[in-house]
């Protein structure tokens, strides 16, 4: 019993730092770069990924003993595509603005390596509880990373976080000159590059 509890808590923490999907495993880079121009779409994207990840992990875990090895990937893809379609419909119905802002990046969750990677590495080998915990942990790790990157980019490019003014811009009579480049693709790449470098430094320090 206690070993099972240990496993749950270690799985829960793994996604947040030790196996953080973005910084440590370098998975699911497309949405990380594409939707982090502002916080709100990043958070919405994060929730979509958590939803799809949890649902697909549950389904895969339930049918893990019935899977035929060579049809495995096909089953995973079918499951993921179904839940992504549902997530997309939910977004369109309840968050139409975010749905237009995210555009094709919602359906692109289908080919996000995190989800198929977790289905393969965790859900198809573990029981329901561990699979759900793993999905939540990985999804949260992903969402937090997305939000951190988005916060940095939004702050530097518009002086706002979650559309609330933090640094008053020159246009509005303040002192901050918005750094427009952070909103462009180059901002995405450079912020992620610097983020990875910072994480590398921290990990080195910890080891030493």
């Amino acid at each position: 019993m206690s070993s099972n509890e240990n496993k749950v808590s270690s799985t829960l923490l793994a996604g947040l730092w030790k196996e953080n999907p973005v910084f440590r495993l370098l998975l699911g880079m497309c949405p990380v770069l594409a939707v982090t121009a502002a916080c709100k779409p990043a958070l919405t994207m994060g929730f979509c990924v958590i939803f799809v990840l949890v649902c697909s992990n549950i389904v895969v875990s339930l049918m893990r003993n019935l899977l035929k090895p060579h049809l495995r990937i096909l089953m995973f893809t079918l499951t993921i595509a179904t839940f992504v379609t549902i997530a997309d419909l939910l977004l369109k119905a309840f968050q139409p603005e975010m749905s237009t802002a995210l555009g094709p990046y919602v359906p692109l969750i289908i080919v996000n390596c995190i989800i198929i990677g977790r289905a393969e590495a965790c859900a198809s080998k573990n029981d329901l509880l561990i699979s759900i915990v793993d999905a939540i942990s990985m999804g949260t790790g992903f969402t937090i990373t997305l939000c951190v990157l988005a916060a940095v980019r939004e702050l530097l490019s518009t002086g706002k976080i979650f559309e609330l003014t933090v640094l008053p811009t020159v246009e509005a009579g303040g002192w901050f000159v918005p750094w427009t480049a952070m909103m462009l693709p180059v901002g995405a790449f450079v912020t992620l590059g610097l983020g990875l470098a910072i994480v590398n430094v921290i990990c080195k320090k910890k080891q030493a």
């Binding site: 480049a181 590059g193 990875l196 080195k204």
Partner: peptide, 20 residues
């Protein structure tokens, strides 16, 4: 390249400059 930038980070920054 500085140690912490080796690998993915420097590639990403290069890619950024390329998009520019």
């Amino acid at each position: 390249v500085p140690d912490c930038f080796a690998g993915a980070p420097i590639t990403l920054i290069t890619a950024g400059i390329l998009t520019l």
